[in-house]
């Protein structure tokens, strides 16, 4: 029964029995894992605030080959995101990040790039309090890292290059962008500005993006395009995505 030590992001917890928790965490070294934290719901417990959602922690746990759930021994906070989640909009953004990781990550498959992306998005939320740039950047890179991002430069139907200022359209199936000539019925438009934003986000890191006046409308079409890719992949709706649409 090896004792493992890893950096991790707590994705979600579920109550178990009288005072325990099932913890789903995204481990830097071993990927998404689930474990039992015994006594974690007691007032006096050895985990403190370390098992709150999206806490960046150092975890120690035991693993048995025959058991799906690991046994969490102890946790120490590296960075807490408890305070930023007390604001409803930021909390919703954090919950969205958590849900996307929980739904898209395969079990026990390390993903260093996504781990760094999650930490980057959370830090940006903490420092700026602005949810839309962080979520747009997170969505774009999460979709790309999962291998689900179609080209934003070419029409998926005829293969012609999309000019930077040309109209582009997207739909649920087939995945990808269509030019105005190949546009399908009921397709949504992805504006030239949003495509430019996507190009910029694929080149530059989140803190180094060109300053913009962000609002819910900024990049909304891009987020819809990316959100559809995630939902098509997991074959279900994201609970937090619809809630985000009501946030100003």
């Amino acid at each position: 029964m090896p004792r493992r030590e890893t950096e991790a992001i707590i994705l979600r917890t579920y109550p178990l029995k009288e005072a325990d928790k099932i913890v789903s965490f995204f481990s830097r070294a071993w990927g998404k894992t689930r474990g039992v934290a015994a006594g974690a719901r007691k007032l006096k417990n050895r985990f403190g605030a370390a098992l709150e959602p999206l806490s960046h922690v150092r975890l120690w746990y035991f693993e048995r080959e025959t058991r799906e759930l690991v046994s969490i021994d102890s946790a120490e906070l590296i960075r807490s995101y408890f305070d930023i989640q007390s604001d409803y909009a930021t909390g919703l953004a954090c919950a969205y990040i958590s849900e996307v990781c929980e739904q898209t990550l395969p079990e026990r498959e390390p993903n260093e790039h996504l781990f760094r992306l999650v930490v980057l998005a959370l830090e940006h939320l903490r420092q700026t309090g602005r949810i839309w740039p962080a979520l747009t950047y997170f969505d774009l890179w999460a979709v790309r890292l999962a291998g689900l991002l179609p080209s934003v430069e070419r029409c998926v139907a005829c293969g012609s290059a999309l000019a930077p200022d040309a109209e582009a359209y997207f739909q649920l199936y087939p995945a990808g962008l269509n030019c105005a000539r190949c546009r399908l019925d009921g397709a949504w438009e992805l504006s030239a500005e949003s495509r430019q934003m996507a190009r910029e986000m694929l080149r530059a890191s989140l803190p180094h993006l060109a300053p913009r006046a962000w609002s819910r409308e900024t990049g909304a079409d891009l987020r819809r395009f990316l959100g559809q890719r995630i939902e098509a992949h997991i074959e279900r709706k994201l609970v937090t995505r619809s809630a985000l649409e009501s946030v100003e």
Binding site: P53, Y88, G91, L92, A95, S98, E99, A243
Partner: peptide, 9 residues
């Protein structure tokens, strides 16, 4: 409030 459980205001 628990967005992951679909509980909003």
């Amino acid at each position: 409030l628990s967005p992951l459980s679909g509980v909003g205001p």
